[in-house]
Design a protein around this nucleic acid. Structure first.
Length: 333
DNA sequence: AAGACGAAAGTGGTTGA
DNA sequence: TCAACAACTTTCGTCTT
């Protein structure tokens, strides 16, 4: 169900090879190769292990263990780092439960009586530890993703979204996980933000408040997460066009469809005029233009009605309408 | 009375030093 | 990081229809 292929493609591949010189392996785990050992010079003794490491059977030196590692990008070298990096978005409760220690296997290379491990033992433990971290990170990322996807799914069906939109939202969320930006952030809020970002990317005129109605997250918070998401994923958003809001407004206010043309004429003029549209809330502009059209076409609607349909205040409708009339020399009577 | 208007103060985000 | 700033909101009193 959960495919993490994005993880690999997204760049979380890392090469593990930094501690090569300190690792020794058993001869039994190897098969022979033709390279030479840089330490003892032996040619015949070089072997490849089952795990892909190249090792010298004479001295036991691990020459290279460059292999693809699907684990996290970070590596922890100190207890503090382990503490701070050990988790990828897992619940806070768990963090407390194990006091932030990254592994169940202790990070000290000592046994229960306090004696240090032999080097072989240490190598084994180190591998075990690595896999333990790895499996945990994966499972928490997967849990996070699966919870997010089901929330996106739920919201999508409540909002009646097309598959293409919800899939875009899911894709955005995956990219957040790949970029490791989901840690300690609300899954539900990020899921809602992904959906809103999909709206903006596809120029679908639906508001934060609409999404907010279907989740326990406040719309302002979704907005914050949305900005976070845009920043982290470096999304390039289309410039908002007031025209996108017009059909929806007309339908919502049950106005004759022919009005749309008048509104679009006004908006087109405004666009040519420059500076009238920049920096302004496109919904306010659409609302103002619609108000003008309602007067011009004798389909009078109150500012209040338009304002509430557009999700702005009367004052904004008023300001936009006044500006448009002034700048475009529109005669309203 | 309903709708339109505009002033004034408040909010949250952006920008630039 | 902080202050200045623009856009928008909230609130409210006044004017117009």
């Amino acid at each position: 169900m959960i495919v993490m292929a994005d993880d690999v493609a997204g760049g979380s591949i890392s090469i593990m090879g930094s501690n090569a010189t300190s690792r020794r392996l058993n001869k039994a785990d190897t098969t022979s190769t033709t390279d030479a050992c840089s330490e003892c010079g032996s040619k015949k003794a070089i072997r490849k292990t089952k795990t892909g490491e190249t090792v010298c059977a004479m001295c036991g030196l691990v020459i290279s263990d460059r292999r693809i590692d699907n684990g996290p990008e970070w590596r922890a070298f100190t207890a503090d780092e382990r503490k701070s990096r050990a988790r990828a978005g897992s619940p806070v409760k768990l963090m407390f439960h194990d006091k932030g220690l990254s592994t169940i296997i202790d990070w000290r290379n000592k046994d229960s009586s306090g004696k240090r491990f032999s080097s072989e033992r240490r190598a084994k433990i180190s591998r075990l530890r690595k896999w333990q971290i790895r499996s945990r990170v994966h499972s928490s990322a997967e849990t996070n993703l699966s919870r997010a996807l089901s929330e996106i799914e739920r919201l999508s069906s409540q909002l009646g979204l097309k598959k293409s939109v919800s899939e875009l939202a899911a894709m955005l969320y995956r990219r957040l996980i790949v970029k490791k930006k989901v840690r300690s952030r609300s899954i539900d809020a990020l899921a809602a933000a992904s959906i809103y970002a999909s709206f903006r990317l596809r120029e679908i005129p639906r508001s934060l408040k609409e999404i907010g109605r279907h989740t326990h997250i406040e719309w302002k918070v979704i907005g914050r997460y949305y900005r976070f998401l845009v920043r982290k994923l470096k999304l390039r958003l289309p410039i908002p066009d007031p025209m996108n809001y017009v059909p929806k407004l007309i339908t919502e206010l049950e106005l004759p469809g022919v009005m749309q043309e008048t509104v679009l004429d006004v908006l087109k003029d405004a666009k040519d005029h420059g500076r009238l549209l920049i920096g302004r809330d496109p919904r306010g502009i659409a609302a103002g233009a619609l108000y003008i059209a309602s007067i011009l076409t004798n389909n009078k609607v109150t500012q209040r009605e338009i304002a509430s349909a557009a999700g702005v205040t009367e004052v904004t409708v008023r300001n936009r309408y006044k500006e448009l009339v002034r700048e475009l020399d529109i005669k309203t009577h």
